[in-house]
Amino acid sequence: MSLLRPTLPALALVVLGASPALAAPQVDAQTCLSCHSVDGVAQIDHIPIIHGQSQTYLRNALHAYKSGQRSGGTADVMQAIAQQLSDAEIDQLAGFFGTEASVVSAAPVTHLVKASAEGADGRLVYLTTEEGGARVVQSRFNHDYFRVAPYLESEKFLTFCSIASMAAVLNSYEDAVQRPIDPKRYPYPYFTQENLFNAANQQVKSFEGVVTDGLTLDEIGQYLTHLDVQPTTVFADENDEAQMRSVILDGLSDPNSRVILNYNRGIVGQDGEGHVSPIAAYHEPSDSVLVLDVAGYKYPPAWIPMPLLYKAMLDKDSASNRSRGLALVRTF
């Protein structure tokens, strides 16, 4: 986002319990994040972790800072910030960062699922298994795997699956698209989950908005139009399974095309709901699609049978009131 500010903090596991349905706080949540969390762990000595802390505690603490009850030393820093907050904003921030479910109880569940070789219900084949690896080698539509997988990075926020997917896909074009120069990687051009938020995209949905709600398939399409590529969004409720398969194969066959999937991962048997990840390969004998999961901390990439994946794309996204589907990305 900025160079003078050395980094935008990444945030991973610790917000697992937070619901994307929470309203975005009016104050800039990034202000809090800049000190309180990098990858969920604050890296300045005296800064506590606030994600996953009790909402009541966070609310009381902010009020104590605001009233001056907590002051002196480093408490003066929080006092200066809390004094700018209304009571309603304190409630919003406490709700945003605080969760009732603790991180410790949430994490092992997902990792148990990940550890299962054949997935939650046996219908998925994870890339990390022998069968999963073999399918990549057998696949006639595997070029995107080798193009995109090297650039895959885990989503920085629970809601950043679309952002992480776009960054990986755009970087996979290497110099065929104009990539911004990220300050931390200067002078090498590279898409990050921060610099995707150019001015035009912030108009579509702000950084904070995406932190809170993620992006719908339509918004992914709008974002991509501002990123030097040509997107086509394909909604599952307007196409049958064969047509969707055909779109995927078109995308995988064309070296200038990539495919981004929007689906409900709960329907394929994984823990979670609406999700976005790049598609990397298609395996004809098993009629399955390799999804490069950008939530790598939850699941490795998985081969998902096409009929099951179609159902997962048909799911209605409550944010857009439309079905999910595919974003086909092409370079000009």
């Binding site: 500010r5 050395p6 202000t31 800049s34 000190c35 300045i44 005296h46 002196g72 030393g73 480093t74 408490a75 003066d76 820093v77 006092q79 200066a80 910030i81």
Partner: peptide, 28 residues
């Protein structure tokens, strides 16, 4: 004067004309 830094980076603050004595850091 107490400089309160609400950012995540250190700021070396300079005051012109008159020197100052450092009396506390982070309240200590």
């Amino acid at each position: 004067w107490t400089f309160v830094n609400t950012t995540a980076y250190p700021h070396p603050m300079h005051i012109h004309i008159n020197p100052f004595q450092v009396v506390a850091i982070n309240g200590k």
